[in-house]
Each structure stands twice: as C-alpha cells, then as structure tokens.
Computed example of a mutant assay.
Amino acid sequence: MWGRIRKSGARFVNAMRTVEQTGREARTHNLFEAAAAYVSACAEDDQDRIEETAAWVSPEALSFGVNELACRAVIALARERDESPGAVARALLGLPAA
C-alpha cells in the first residue's frame, strides 16, 4: 500500500515539473523550488522575480508548494522557540494569543 502512495506522489511531483529554456540548456523546476523562489521574491518585493517564478509551475502547484513551505516554516520556528505551532502562527500574523 505504501508503495502505491509513494509512486502516486512521485507521479504528482513529476507532473508538476516544467522545463524552462535558459540559453542552450533546459532547466527543470519542481513545485517546491518554485514555491521557495516565489516566497523569497515576495519577501523582497521583487515583482519581476515574482512573475518569473509564478510561471515555473501551475498556479495550483505553486499554491500547494507555498502552503507546504509555510507549514514547515511554522513547525521549524515552533521547535526553535519551544512554542506550539499555533502560537507561532498567530505571532507571525500579529494576532493576539488564543
């Protein structure tokens, strides 16, 4: 059963890859690479890079990747601060403690 899930996940990730032509070589981007570049560009307010990275994968794949990045970042910060992920998420958004 886990083998099927793993294969299905691999097919999904491979389907989300796109190829970008850079000079004479082809460059493949996966959804996590696109999400990392997109979020970095948003943090730096670099509109040209935002538009470029948003085109690397489908909008649905980019949304999934950004969500996954956010989850991992909140978990990492929660571990670092020895707080709950909920408390860290609320603090990052400037919300009062629950």
Rank of each mutant, 00 (worst) to 15 (best):
N67E: 11
G23E: 02
A10R: 15
R17E: 11
E80S: 11
L92M: 08
A55R: 02
R4V: 12
G3V: 04
Y38W: 13
R49L: 04
R4W: 13
A78H: 04
F32Y: 02
R79N: 09
D82V: 04
T28S: 06
L62E: 01
A98E: 11
A98Y: 05
G86T: 09
L93F: 00
A26H: 11
T28L: 06
E83T: 04
A41K: 00
L69T: 08
G94Q: 07
A36H: 09
A10E: 15
R27Q: 03
N14E: 15
F12H: 14
L31H: 11
S63T: 14
R81M: 10
E51G: 01
P59K: 09
V88C: 09
H29V: 03
E44K: 12
C42G: 00
D45H: 09
V57S: 02
A41D: 10
T22P: 03
L62M: 03
Q21A: 04
A70P: 00
E52R: 04
E60Q: 13
K7G: 15
R4I: 10
V57Q: 04
A98Q: 00
V88P: 00
S40H: 09
E20Q: 03
L62T: 06
C71F: 14
A70M: 11
S58Y: 14
W56Y: 06
A76V: 06
V88A: 10
A37E: 04
A10M: 15
A35K: 05
N67T: 08
N14V: 15
E25M: 12
R11F: 06
Q47L: 12
V57P: 01
R90C: 06
A37Q: 04
F12Y: 14
H29A: 02
C42M: 02
A36F: 07
H29M: 00
T28Q: 06
L92K: 04
A36S: 12
G23W: 04
G9K: 12
Y38S: 02
A61C: 06
L92D: 09
A97Y: 01
G3M: 06
D45N: 11
V66F: 03
A15I: 15
A73E: 15
C71W: 14
A55M: 02
